[in-house]
Design a protein around this nucleic acid. Structure first.
Lengths: 136, 136
DNA sequence: ATCCTACGATGGACGGAGTCCAAGTCAAGA
DNA sequence: TCTTGACTTGGACTCCGTCCATCGTAGGAT
């Protein structure tokens, strides 16, 4: 994830140890951690990192388009570092596990003008739900 | 919405004034109120109705499949009484207004088996986002 | 019409998730 | 090395929602 750190520094970020650790925690595929989970893992490497800093850093990464925020249910938001590869999410209705999926088709094309109510529609987010192998 | 009340009574519900008022508040199309908004409107008709009762009643209606819970952003859940007409949602990225929409196509069919990871996929929820006419 | 009682309502305490703020710290340019 | 403004900290706070002990009442039984 030094890619991410490079991109962030290129945007004028001051590179602190806290930000470095948060970026490292978010590395990988199928990573969908809550802010508190990010905080817990970051604290393993940098014990005194604060929750506020984790929230700030995640929020900034989201604003910069480097991380996606996923509001699965009414619970805590999850953070998905896979922002540069368009995808949707498949969520287990029972245990909440999240997988990245790549449906065919383009949902935006499925919304006819008569159903747009004058909105400038820019995004379609698809959430699939069902039971995962472990919960099935 | 006496339809709804009839259905609920048919399911063994005790018909209290509180439940009646909540059901009345949820009547109509394009209704997507938060629990607190439901509480406020219910309280206009029945001043001493409690928040807990509103939450209980909404939760029961959701369990019975008479009302749909919509988690638009990370904020308060919204309650959509239009449960018997399948639809998706179009949300203004700026002001949060919600409209019911009816896309063509079936997103479930767009998720190939190889992208299902062994899940028993049962539901696909599509959320469109963009700027509404007022915010555009 | 009245009584009974289990189901529902109440409100206040509680919990989780997230934001805010004043004070202290430090990355990085001069 | 110095300086400074951006960053971090932790604790208080807000918002949304749940829980619980107690009280009230809908509606069947009589």
């Amino acid at each position: 994830m030094s890619d991410l750190l490079e991109r962030l520094r290129g945007r004028g970020w001051r590179l602190t140890s806290q930000r470095r650790v948060v970026a490292q925690v978010l590395d990988g595929d199928h990573v969908h951690l809550t802010a508190d989970e990010v905080h817990a893992r970051a604290a393993e490497r940098l014990p005194e990192i604060s929750r506020a800093t984790v929230y700030n850093t995640l929020g900034e990464m989201v604003s910069l388009g480097e991380v996606i925020e996923v509001s699965t249910d009414g619970r805590a938001k999850r953070y998905d570092p896979n922002a540069h590869h368009p995808h949707q999410h498949l969520i287990c209705s029972n245990c909440g596990t999240v997988r990245d999926v790549h449906p065919t088709g383009n949902p935006l094309a499925d919304l006819p003008p008569s159903e747009r109510f004058g909105f400038a529609v820019s995004e379609a987010e698809v959430t699939y739900r069902g039971l995962c192998p472990d919960c099935g």
